[in-house]
Design a binder for these strands. Structure first.
Length: 320
DNA sequence: CCTCTATGGCGAA
DNA sequence: TCGCCCTAGAGGC
């Protein structure tokens, strides 16, 4: 479920679990045997994310590059050493294993070992990432303002903006009342600035809460919770592999709990989980085709744009 | 239980 | 433009 915030969290989790360690790398599935052998026995330097690309630097200038694609999963968990390594289930392309942490990669669209030069080349193909501090939104603006393609296509083009996926695309255009079909050349500077700063705010919140939050009431509630330090998680992925035994909460932490990142698990309190933030999965337009717009009541529409289902309100986002 | 769908993007054709 | 990747939640039966 990778939009940029998910990859950012994944990088943080991998970094917390493996940086400074020398994991055993294997490919239980057998389709990445060669790459795993290349990484095996090398120390992990650091993990980072660029847009939807994940990079894990191993000692000796070997970089693991992963793109989860639509269905990929990369779980990171800790386990009790005395219990032994968790059994492999399903198609695990790559497993990284230390005495107390295990990461399993499944279903990724891209999984390869690359050189530093190749990392640079991949990053060079990406536009600015709203989740990276030093980014220059003007680089994206230069492309947008001279493109006749619809803005809904441009904001999801990873060479223009890195890390924005279909949910953020639909929601940010709605929040800013932008007609998704308006060509880049007709987007006003101020509109672009508003979109960029909105993405920075929303995606940052997405990292903190491990959930895409775009509705203003939820955004405000989440920012309040963040201020109080009541985010689900923060550091690490420290689930005890004993997971949610009856005893329950105990240590806390979680989200990333055990399994993957990905969308919350939605409502309903998780059984021993820890207080989820209680923020339900709710959007302005995403996947709401046919339902009334939450603001004006007109029917939310959908249409394939850039290969993904775009959702928008034809009235609120009317060309102005 | 089974079928459908999808918060992507690559590489072949 | 299409197939692949081959997961996992949602929804139907």
């Amino acid at each position: 479920m990778p939009e940029g915030h998910t990859l950012r969290r994944l990088a943080q989790a991998l970094d917390a679990a493996f940086a400074g360690t020398t994991p055993v790398a294997t490919s239980p599935q057998g389709r990445f045997t060669e790459g795993a052998a290349l990484l095996n026995g090398r120390a992990v330097v650091a993990a980072s994310a660029w847009g939807k690309h994940l990079f894990v630097e191993f000692q000796g200038e070997q970089w693991l590059n992963v793109h989860l694609g639509l269905i990929g999963k990369f779980s990171v968990e800790s386990y009790a050493p005395y219990a032994g390594a968790p059994p492999v289930w399903g198609q695990v392309r790559l497993r990284l294993l230390t005495a107390d942490h295990v990461a399993d990669l499944r279903g990724a669209a891209v999984c390869q070992v690359v050189s530093p030069e190749e990392v640079d080349a991949i990053v060079a193909r990406l536009g600015p990432d709203p989740l990276r501090a030093e980014q220059d939104p003007d680089r994206a603006w230069a492309r947008i303002t001279k493109s006749g393609r619809p803005i809904a296509e441009l904001v999801m083009d990873q060479s223009i903006l890195a890390g924005v996926g279909n949910v953020y695309r639909c929601e940010v255009l709605y929040r800013n009342r932008v007609d998704p079909f308006r060509p880049g050349t007709e987007i006003r500077t101020r509109t672009w600035q508003a979109i960029w700063s909105d993405l920075v705010e929303l995606m940052t919140l997405g990292v903190s809460f491990n959930q895409i939050l775009t509705m203003q009431d939820q955004v405000e509630e989440a920012e309040l919770l963040a201020l109080e330090g009541r985010m689900p998680t923060l550091t690490s992925v420290d689930t005890d592999s004993a997971r949610r035994s009856a005893s329950g909460p105990a240590g806390v932490v979680a989200t990333a709990d055990g399994e993957d990142e990905d969308d919350e698990a939605s409502g309903a309190g998780s059984p021993g989980g820890l207080e989820s933030t209680g923020l339900e999965r709710r959007y302005y337009v995403y996947k709401r085709q046919g339902e009334p717009c939450r603001v004006c009541g007109s029917r939310i529409r959908t249409q394939l744009v850039a290969g993904r289902n775009l959702f928008w309100c034809g009235r609120c986002q009317r060309r102005r």
